[in-house]
């Protein structure tokens, strides 16, 4: 079982005002890390630079929350990319289950839902390090026939400098998330 609880970054609800979450007063530096994407290419902190990234953590055997979030983000990216073509927006999914979520599995998963998304896997130590940096909680729940995870389902907005700029609630409506992300990428 992996349990991570860390005091969260300082949040400020005033600037900018978001409906679906909170923007950080001081953007949080992402720590150095090394994972692999679904094409088996190395992905590091530097790959967050020069675009906005919507980042979330999950696992491909998650039947409900993760695919719902992927669907929302995918729809939103299409709309925002059409309306603000200069705002480059990436969606990145980091697995909390590298044991089952190999690069091949992620490739299959991303192709099924949205082939433009980036799926990351790798050493559990790297995933733990990054999740601790972002105050992501995850806990493996063993069952008779496998295991699931309880996990933070927030959507993290990473700015063009590879810093965490905001954290959004996964249960927000598509409209609220879209408006907030438009606000953040237009800043």
């Amino acid at each position: 079982m992996v349990l991570i609880i860390q005091k969260g970054p300082i949040l400020n609800e005033k600037q900018p005002i978001l409906q679906s979450g909170k923007a950080l007063k001081q953007p949080l530096e992402i720590i150095d890390f090394e994972l692999k994407d679904q094409k088996n290419q190395v992905f590091t902190k530097n790959d967050f630079k020069n675009q906005f990234t919507l980042l979330f953590f999950g696992y491909t055997n998650c039947p409900d929350v993760c695919p719902s979030t992927i669907y929302k983000l995918s729809q939103m990216k299409k709309k925002i990319s059409q309306d603000i073509p200069e705002a480059t927006l990436e969606i990145v999914f980091i697995t909390l289950d590298p044991e089952r979520d190999t690069t091949d599995r992620l490739d299959e998963y991303m192709n099924f839902f949205d082939s433009t998304m980036i799926g990351l896997t790798g050493e559990i130590s790297e995933i733990v390090k990054l999740s601790a940096n972002l105050s992501v909680f995850f806990q493996r729940i063993n069952k008779e026939d496998g295991y699931d995870f309880n996990h933070t389902a927030s959507i993290f907005v990473i700015n063009t400098e590879a810093q965490l700029g905001a954290s959004l609630s996964p249960i927000s409506s598509l409209e609220m998330l879209e408006e907030d992300i438009r606000t953040l990428v237009s800043k």
Binding site: D64, V65, F137, I141, D148, N150, H151, T152, A153, S154, S167, S169, P170, I171
Partner: peptide
């Protein structure tokens, strides 16, 4: 039958 509970942005099934 499963239920998702989301509290403090943590999803639990």
């Amino acid at each position: 039958v499963h239920m998702i509970f989301i509290s403090n942005n943590i999803a639990q099934m």
